[in-house]
């Protein structure tokens, strides 16, 4: 077990180094990065001064080492628009993004499992057909367009849900204001429903299909037939014998799913003016605020990598077939 954990940890460190390397290369690939930092009207002297101040005049390998050592100290440079450390700006926007991603994940998984099981149990019936048709459609709809359509229908026409805005839950919770956080929770969820569905619908569809095929496979196995022949109720066969194995592929995917949803959130936040990292990145892109873009990408990648590590470790515990 310990060798597995250590090996997996080393792997994660390599991946993190890879990520920083890629983000460093990305900055260099478009030519002299100084031009990203200076205004278009800057004079040659100003550009030269900026280049020296930013350290872009030094050899590349030294730049990379400085870059890494700054990152290790949490220093991503100052945001060019906010005039304060980029990492602070990013961390402030992070809770709203995590909130929405978690909500979408819970929504997707908690609906995908029953729908997939249902579909598998009623295989070939109209119930199965319609669930799978919706799932197929769900994998073909761009999440941001779904968001726009929901805003038009449920927000503007029927006036059921707010079309933008955000009530924080995670932020007060992290600041220790637990009572305030929980009194705000119903409001927070109300604001989260439309963006959450827009982000999670693709995952919901994908996982419903995954659970269905995994369930069908398990239902054909000998041990399920054995359980049935022992006269156990169908419900017990499904819940206790089949489902237990059928949902394992879904668990493996939760880590990847979270990262995938994070990517979706980045786009959907734009549609709902959600004050998270996505909107931050988008604004940073249009203002060429490179430190903020870099800090956001690296912070999100770190979360993703840590999560995958955790999932692997948990998976190794719940599935005894996994060898260390």
């Amino acid at each position: 077990m310990w060798t597995f954990i250590v090996r997996r940890l080393i792997q994660s460190v390599i991946v993190i180094i890879g990520v920083t390397f890629i983000s460093f290369v990305a900055l260099q690939i478009g030519g002299d990065p100084t031009y990203l930092y200076v205004s278009e009207r800057a004079s040659t002297e100003e550009i030269e001064a900026a280049r020296r101040a930013l350290g872009f005049d030094r050899p590349l390998h030294i730049q990379y080492v400085t870059y890494i050592s700054n990152l290790l100290q949490g220093d991503f440079g100052n945001s060019l628009t906010f005039r304060r450390p980029a990492i602070d700006v990013v961390l402030q926007a992070l809770p709203a993004t995590i909130e929405l991603t978690l909500f979408a994940l819970i929504l997707a998984i908690s609906l995908a499992i029953p729908l997939g099981v249902f579909s598998a149990l009623y295989r070939g019936t109209p119930v199965d057909g319609s669930i799978m048709t919706v799932a197929m459609l769900g994998q073909s709809i761009p999440n941001f367009w779904l968001g726009i359509m929901m805003i038009m229908l449920f927000g503007l026409q029927l006036r059921l849900f707010p079309i933008s805005g955000h009530v924080p839950f995670l932020m007060p919770l992290l600041q220790g204001e637990i009572v305030r956080a929980f009194t705000q929770l119903p409001q927070a969820l109300y604001y989260m429903i439309m963006p959450g569905v827009a982000v999670g619908f693709y995952s919901l569809s994908r996982n419903a299909r995954l659970v269905r095929s995994s369930m069908l496979e398990v239902l054909g196995q000998d041990y399920v037939r054995t359980a049935r022949s022992k006269g156990i109720s169908e419900r017990a066969v499904v819940v206790r014998h089949a489902l237990r194995n059928a949902w394992l592929p879904v668990v493996t995917m939760i880590g990847l799913e979270f990262g995938f949803l994070l990517g979706g959130v980045v786009v959907v936040e734009m549609v709902f003016s959600w004050p998270g990292i996505g909107r931050l990145v988008f604004n940073a892109i249009s203002q060429r605020d490179i430190p903020v873009v870099q800090a956001s990408v690296i912070v999100l990648a770190l979360i993703f990598i840590t999560l995958n590590l955790l999932v692997d470790l948990i998976y190794a515990r719940i599935d005894p077939r996994v060898k260390y």
Binding site: S12, V19, G263, I285, V293, Q294, S296, A301
Partner: peptide, 13 residues
Amino acid sequence: AFPFILLAIMFLV
């Protein structure tokens, strides 16, 4: 190990 859209955003920026 890297959410793809982030990579794409970074390179395209």
